[in-house]
Design a binder for these strands. Sequence first.
DNA 1: CTTGCCATGTTGTCACTGTAAACATTTCGA
DNA 2: TCGAAATGTTTACAGTGACAACATGGCAAG
Lengths: 203, 203
Amino acid sequence: MASKDNSVNIKSGGAKASGAYHHGDLRAAVIAAGLKRLEADDGGELGLRALARDVGVSATALYRHFPDKEALLDALADEGLRRLGARQAQAWLKAGGGRNGFKATGITYVRFAHEEPALFRLSFTRQMRERTVDVDNDGGEVAYKLLRAGVGEALPGVEDPDTAALHAWALVHGLAMLILDRRIEWDEEMVEQVVGLTFGGIC
Amino acid sequence: MASKDNSVNIKSGGAKASGAYHHGDLRAAVIAAGLKRLEADDGGELGLRALARDVGVSATALYRHFPDKEALLDALADEGLRRLGARQAQAWLKAGGGRNGFKATGITYVRFAHEEPALFRLSFTRQMRERTVDVDNDGGEVAYKLLRAGVGEALPGVEDPDTAALHAWALVHGLAMLILDRRIEWDEEMVEQVVGLTFGGIC
DNA sequence: CTTGCCATGTTGTCACTGTAAACATTTCGA
DNA sequence: TCGAAATGTTTACAGTGACAACATGGCAAG
């Protein structure tokens, strides 16, 4: 059986072909529209009706593709994690792996949260309800594997790699969250310093 | 001028004196009821009507004491921060200050998040809008001062205390958040280990 | 004590939300 | 070709935060 493609396919313009009753790929279009709204991040809630209007479809049409609003948000969250993972992988490569790459990975994490606040928050603040997850394609799972592998390669001699990985993750995640909630202000240099303290050194 | 008492005063039973038109101290009662609901943490939203019913008052009565729902949530959030700060101070003292006290402070932070998930999340996830804050009484401000002082006393020889403080805060905050969102499971021993890595050692 | 002001609480209502049910249209396989 | 399945629409309903108009009772001035 063909595994259901869960990733977003931003294909056509989005609006359905002017008067057509059926849309073509509503699910993808809705997710794309949702992401756009999250990028705009007016701070307000993400309502079904507004989303449906963006896509040019009636509100209840969304229920043909998602059991409820939560499921829709889950899909958006998942896409968020996938993007985060992609950017991190990219940063890792660009820095040439190793300790530098690991640090870049961490900084990218925080920067992502700062640049896409609503998406980042949505992605993580979502109470992981049991969705039958295709483990190989789950954004969160991918990101963690990357992290764990990074620890292995960047800090080869560390005594407890799992603890170290958790430490690193918690650090960047906390930094990201504190910035999102405006407990502390975004400051690239500061982030580099704080992250470097753990990711660069041994710890 | 008398500074307005912003803290919660859980005095009487809560329900207004059986048939009395006026309540006595509705504001405090509402906050107390709100905290109770957050402790129960059914996961659902905190609605004005439910809250009003708990206190035995009509929904719109709340608007005599809070400009809008956000303000009410702000008050709850503030109380949450105050409680967190109190517990941390207590832990600090119990551990006799110093490096041990500092570590205890950090663990208490994470434990608090685990024990009062809804309250913790509410307290931090709230977009710090400009409320004219009585700085000396603001929960968050108090907590940060405590942290900053802790770094000073626990790690006297550290090169950049501000960065170290941020590091410590981000670490425990990230740990707390990841646990709340079920990215990682609560595990007292694990927390001690991870926190100890930074708070105990130098870093 | 009386009177009237004003803080506080209530009722009614509005726009908006997620979502369910019934109906319409299109696509696609037998 | 034809009917079933997939997809979209309309209508409706209960619940939400919020506002305006009205009711009540405590309290201070006369």
